[in-house]
Amino acid sequence: MEETVLLVIVLLLPLTASLVVTQVNPYHALVMRGVLGTIAALIYALFGAADVALTEALVGTMLSITLYAIAVRSSLSMRLGVLEGSPVLDASTLAARQLLQRIRQGLQPQHMRLELAAYANAELLLAALRDREVHSILLEPGDETADYRLVTRVPRLQTLLAQQTLVCEVMAP
């Protein structure tokens, strides 16, 4: 009887491992990695390897998923440089809100976030784009009828945003 239970528990390990591999969303995959770590710790403990189980529980589950969550969160994002005092920063005008919404919708399928960075004037904004501090910048419309201008240095971001019919110019390197 105990062998049967042990067999069932051991079979859970490849099952959870395949669940980790088949996840699309990186955050879901991280949580599943935690589940895999707990099941693995359980199996190690059942086989009598207390030290391995403790290491798996503390390092493999606790530390690694927390570090990975922070790493994924900071790398899967688009930094957008805007001018200080722009309505985009606090989404105060309708046009700014719609623009932010469309950019977020364009980034959503890739599980990316939008991060805003404020710069004092247009020269600093362009310099930030050149110095690779931001991925793209947003230039204010010149007059009432004009639209915001998006300039990016990453061609892939242009194709992503083009699916939301957002026009995005690619700056020459």
Partner: peptide, 30 residues
Amino acid sequence: MIGIVGVLMLSVGNAALMLLAHVIKRLEML
């Protein structure tokens, strides 16, 4: 020896969950 592993997992294992919950919450806010 395995009993101590179980007790340690009970007493410190939830801390990682709380940290992860806060990271995911910050993710939804931005």
